[in-house]
Design a protein around this nucleic acid. Structure first.
Lengths: 250, 250
DNA sequence: GACATTTGTTCATATATCGCACATTATCGC
DNA sequence: GCGATAATGTGCGATATATGAACAAATGTC
């Protein structure tokens, strides 16, 4: 690609949108300039453009995104067949096992939820399509990392900011790579309170065309109700059935 | 705003993202140029930019959005407190009444789902945060339209492409305005199979600061199981309790 | 209340982008 | 295969945008 094929203003605008996040729902021009590294004048122009188009609101001091911005993500969720195909299966699965079920894909070092059937709330954080979790300590993340060539998985782990969310979180890259090998061999991944105390989950791969692993499915449960050791016995057959059914669709 | 404060390239890029949708997951350069009305060269530059940034994939022929694009919508969902606050209440409500519960806001002529606790699948279409429905024939849409000054509601109806999804759909603007008045007076809205046969729902407003209606909550049910006439009796108290609890939070 | 800082806005100009016209390459019907 | 048609890639002048410094306004500090 020649560099004249790159629209700098567009790229900067997207960075401005991403500047809004969890802890920063309302931002002043200077805030955006700082977090994006853009010049204040440029940040201002991006924000005014967003506001002019209705993607953001401006009260004279702070900018905030409007629900119109959801059109952008929705363009993916509705355009990509996978979320739509998977959702009814997750609903059925969730109903059947009495727990939350989700599907996700890998984006960089993170797992991105593309569909979810939430049953009981067992996690403190609220997951929905678009939500992200670090791949290294999520059951679906382990599946998706295990699907990559080992070298690639290692690179992703290397550029992940690994931290221990709980005393159970595995943080050693080599140990994690060993775990990935185990996951690859056994065909499913179990996480026991590595992300959040009291929460465990089990995930399986979803196979697409040419046998490629395109997504992961999981079931999450409260560790108090169901010990991690029992996850495979209780949920693996249902998960594998769903994964098999979904495979037949393609 | 002076016109030099507007970044055309950014606005065009956003249009390109929105060109991807339900029926068009994969688009060639010329497709995008046609649907957006942009010059082919410009559409190409936008697409290459998206691809360079990892928001899209390019196989040499077609472009498709990647899950990274969800970061943009997620910036809103995680930045705006409302979805996060509402979700646990919806979960509780859904569990309590044994039906799906949702929350939405108005964006133009459409209702945008910002949170949802799906219980049983009663709709043919798959709703999730970011999903959109025409406001005029959705229970939450009626609530949100009724919250506007009548003149504004009329204008929205005028620029809506009103069509009859079922034989029950009300399509006459004056009749709809009358219905809005009724909704405003009684404080809740009931839809009986206007959007989809076999589906009915009931919605209430969610009050924010200064008494402004900031969102709507609803419960959907199968018309076969629960006639529309019984919705108020069965679900209104629970809905109103939730709305009241949520009001206290602010 | 005056000073120091931060923030928002404007301006001139260097730079990048736009859209057109043309060249090239793929796709389709036959 | 071959011509017709459509799609993609590219160079260029006109035009729009980015930049950083300078200014104005607001905010915070003492």
């Amino acid at each position: 690609m020649r560099d004249t094929d790159f629209i700098g203003g567009f790229a900067k605008g997207l960075r401005v949108i991403e500047a809004f996040g969890e802890a920063t729902p309302r931002l002043a021009i200077a805030d955006v300039a700082r977090t994006t590294g853009l010049d204040r004048a440029t940040a201002r122009r991006c924000l005014l453009t967003l506001s002019e188009l209705g993607y953001a609101e401006y009260d004279g001091k702070f900018f905030a995104l409007t629900p119109k911005i959801l059109r952008l993500g929705h363009a993916y969720l509705s355009a990509t067949p996978l979320p739509k195909i998977v959702q009814p299966f997750l609903d059925r699965l969730s109903e059947e096992v009495g727990q939350s079920a989700s599907a996700s894909v890998l984006d960089g070092t993170e797992v991105v939820y593309i569909a979810r059937a939430s049953h009981r709330r067992v996690m403190s954080i609220n997951l929905m399509p678009g939500s992200r979790l670090p791949a290294y300590c999520a059951s679906m993340g382990r599946i998706l990392l295990a699907a990559l060539p080992e070298e690639e998985a290692r690179q992703i782990l290397e550029r992940t900011a690994i931290r221990a969310f709980t005393p159970f979180t595995r943080t050693d890259p080599d140990e994690l790579l060993g775990e990935l090998a185990r996951v690859r061999a056994q065909g499913y991944a179990v996480i026991d309170q590595e992300l959040e105390l009291g929460l465990c989950s089990i995930a399986v791969p979803l196979i697409g065309e040419r046998g490629r692993i395109v997504a992961a499915l999981n079931v999450g449960a409260s560790a108090a109700q169901i010990p991690a050791g029992e996850l495979a016995k209780r949920f693996l057959p249902a998960l594998q059935t769903i994964a098999q059914d979904l495979r037949l669709l393609r």
